[in-house]
């Protein structure tokens, strides 16, 4: 049972988050609480419901033109990148397939869907560094597919760091630098467009405590975090590969945040974070 003062403060913080009153720092704190505290998340949901009738106060207005063709074209381009390389897009794809003979010069490799997700939050140097860390050559070591059913035995595959191959044309990728509280980079995650595999590498000095395991989460907007996978099972390896379900790729496409927590290694499932987020970041296109 939380103290009355604390409950009041949390209730107000939830309302302030919903209304958009908080400055960037306060908002980041509230969003972190939202991701990790179901009670706070419930308070946020209630304020959203309480205030929803106010939406009727916005006067409806027509855009200057029909925007749907542009919207649909953007969505089609997002889907086309996947379809090109993996056949007909499906919504229940849970398995990573070995990368096809990718044509990196394919004009379809441009996925404007990423564009808006990249809100200019990443420094070009950091992204370039991330790119170099993970290496552009993604053709080797695919191994067996991995699903996103997160159970202790569903750890990500490890792979040796790819050799520093130098393709003539660098593939388009999205990269997220996951940083800790102090802004220290701790992990680098990357996904090549059209490839349903996320690669994650430790770039800082974070180490999980004995008996815990790193879990990667995706947080879309103010929705509850969803576990992507555990990773880092084999400490002799440098880059973990995690196969992504179609639905999770959708979420990452939508500009979601990636976050890492250290969860008890003996948990049966990872339904929600039970420990503080140690690093987080959003994806940007390179």
């Amino acid at each position: 049972m939380k103290a009355p003062m604390e409950r009041d403060e949390r209730m107000l913080l939830a309302a302030e988050l919903v209304l958009g009153l908080l400055d960037d720092g306060e908002r980041a704190h509230a969003l972190e609480l939202l991701a990790q505290d179901p009670d706070f998340a419930e308070q946020v949901r209630r304020w959203e419901a309480h205030l929803a009738p106010l939406f009727a106060g916005f006067a409806p207005r027509e855009p200057s033109r029909d925007l749907y063709p542009d919207i649909r074209a953007r969505l089609n381009r997002i889907d086309a990148v996947r379809t090109d390389r993996f056949g007909a897009a499906t919504t229940d794809s849970t398995a990573a397939r070995a990368p096809a003979a990718a044509n990196e010069n394919d004009a379809q490799g441009v996925a404007p869907g990423w564009r808006w997700a990249a809100l200019g939050s990443s420094a070009a140097a950091a992204v370039l560094a991330a790119f170099l860390v993970l290496g552009p050559s993604l053709s080797g070591g695919a191994g067996a597919p991995q699903t996103n059913e997160v159970a202790p035995n569903a750890v990500a595959q490890n792979e040796q760091q790819a050799p520093q191959g130098q393709p003539a044309v660098a593939p388009r990728m999205v990269v997220a630098q996951l940083s800790g509280d102090e802004g220290t980079p701790q992990y680098v995650a990357s996904i090549r467009q059209g490839d349903p595999v996320l690669r994650i590498r430790l770039s800082g000095d974070l180490r999980e405590a004995p008996g815990t395991v790193p879990v990667l989460w995706v947080i879309a907007g103010d929705n509850p975090p969803e576990a992507i996978s555990t990773f880092g099972a084999d400490q002799t390896q440098t880059v973990d590969r995690i196969a992504l379900k179609q639905a999770l790729i959708d979420l990452i496409d939508s500009g979601a945040t990636l976050a890492v927590t250290f969860e008890p290694a003996d948990a049966k499932t990872y339904d929600a974070p039970t420990t503080p987020i140690v690093a987080k970041g959003t994806v940007s296109e390179i």
């Binding site: 200057s64 925007l67 919207i71 953007r74 969505l75 808006w116 879309a220 929705n223 959708d250 939508s254």
Partner: peptide, 16 residues
Amino acid sequence: EDVLQDVYIKVALTAR
């Protein structure tokens, strides 16, 4: 109008 386009892309990707 740009934001509205983003909104519908987001809706399509997070409808679940």
